Amino acid sequence: MNIRVGQGYDVHQLKEGHPFWLGGIQIDHTHGAVGHSDADVLIHVICDALLGAANLRDIGFHFSDKDAQYKGIDSKILLKKTLELIRDKGYEVGNIDTTVCLQAPKLNPYIPDIKTCLAGVIGTDMDNISVKATTTEKLGFVGRKEGVSAYATVLIYKK
């Protein structure tokens, strides 16, 4: 079996009054992530990890923030396009392991909905997607509630 592993990392600034999208769902919060698209940091790291695993460069290469067609785009669309790219090379998603670093809000109540959403977009079982959340114990830009960061590791395999 031909398997490959990829990893992703992303950061977005948080600002008051912006919508907060994470893992394809909107979370009610006073602050949301800022970005060219909907700034869904979790989907962005998953895309980066998948693209890296398939040796297809990164999310910025395929979906440039200089390209007007991606302004405000729903990141679920970017994930679908990423899946098309890796599937065109004959790969399928094995599993995805993610960690979101965010001081507030607490994400635990939202994780089942995030996993359901991601599994639906990817076309896989929820058991193949892990979403973990942590704070930075009030340290750094995450701890000061200035931003959100996320990490992803993925396994893909040749069909």
Score class of each variant (00 low, 15 high):
42 L>N: 02
43 I>N: 07
43 I>D: 03
43 I>T: 07
45 V>T: 10
46 I>A: 03
46 I>H: 03
47 C>H: 09
48 D>E: 07
53 A>M: 10
55 N>W: 07
56 L>A: 00
56 L>Q: 01
56 L>C: 02
56 L>S: 00
56 L>G: 02
57 R>S: 14
58 D>K: 10
58 D>P: 11
60 G>W: 03
62 H>A: 10
63 F>I: 07
64 S>P: 15
66 K>T: 14
68 A>G: 03
68 A>S: 08
68 A>Q: 10
70 Y>C: 05
70 Y>E: 01
71 K>E: 12
71 K>N: 10
72 G>A: 06
73 I>N: 02
74 D>R: 11
76 K>P: 00
76 K>T: 15
78 L>Y: 03
78 L>D: 02
80 K>A: 15
80 K>D: 12
81 K>D: 13
82 T>Y: 12
83 L>R: 00
84 E>D: 15
85 L>S: 05
85 L>G: 03
86 I>L: 04
86 I>G: 04
86 I>Y: 05
89 K>N: 08
89 K>C: 10
89 K>M: 12
90 G>R: 12
90 G>S: 07
92 E>R: 15
92 E>I: 14
94 G>P: 03
94 G>K: 02
95 N>E: 13
96 I>D: 11
98 T>M: 00
99 T>Q: 14
101 C>S: 08
101 C>L: 04
101 C>N: 02
101 C>F: 06
102 L>T: 04
102 L>N: 02
103 Q>K: 10
104 A>F: 08
104 A>T: 13
105 P>M: 04
109 P>Y: 09
109 P>C: 09
109 P>R: 11
110 Y>C: 10
110 Y>P: 01
111 I>S: 12
113 D>H: 13
113 D>T: 12
114 I>P: 00
115 K>C: 11
115 K>I: 13
115 K>H: 11
116 T>R: 08
116 T>N: 12
122 I>D: 07
122 I>A: 01
122 I>N: 03
123 G>Y: 00
123 G>A: 00
124 T>M: 09
127 D>W: 05
131 V>Y: 05
131 V>E: 08
133 A>V: 03
135 T>E: 09
135 T>S: 14
135 T>I: 06
136 T>C: 13
137 E>Y: 15
137 E>N: 15
137 E>K: 15
138 K>S: 05
138 K>G: 01
140 G>I: 11
140 G>Y: 13
143 G>I: 05
143 G>E: 11
144 R>Q: 15
144 R>E: 15
146 E>G: 05
